[in-house]
């Protein structure tokens, strides 16, 4: 049988992989995919724990996770598309209009 810690380790791997995708890839679509991978890591944690405790709460948690992800992703994707439409880019590097003016003003 599978020890819980093994499932959790795989889940943690997925979570960190998703995080790495977000940190390393500079394109919005990749970042969204990274988010999905992170969420899947969480889902695996919840389901493995649900099996361990033998109650359905873990699965319920995962279902809500899917719902929330879907809702969030829908809006986020549209925003990405809007960025593409209006700003003609999906590169993170190009989305840096909002930032501190480091020239520094009068003291």
């Amino acid at each position: 049988m599978i020890p819980l810690s093994h499932s959790l380790t795989i889940a943690a791997l997925l979570f960190v992989l998703g995080l790495a995708i977000i940190l390393l890839r500079r394109e919005l679509l990749f970042i969204l995919m990274g988010l999905e991978v992170m969420f899947n890591g969480v889902a695996l944690t919840a389901i493995a724990a649900g099996q361990y405790w033998n109650n359905p709460d873990g699965q319920v948690l995962t279902i809500f996770l899917m719902v929330v992800t879907a809702a969030e992703l829908a809006v986020a994707l549209i925003l990405v598309w809007l960025a593409f439409e209006h700003l003609k880019t999906t590169q993170v590097d190009m989305l840096t209009r909002l930032k501190d003016d480091t020239k520094g003003g009068a003291p």
Partner: peptide, 19 residues
């Protein structure tokens, strides 16, 4: 994107609390 990123941490915390 960042809110989603933070939500992932929140949810991971929740899942670990459940664990």
């Amino acid at each position: 994107l960042l809110a989603g990123f933070a939500a992932a941490f929140f949810l991971y915390g929740t899942a670990l609390a459940y664990t």
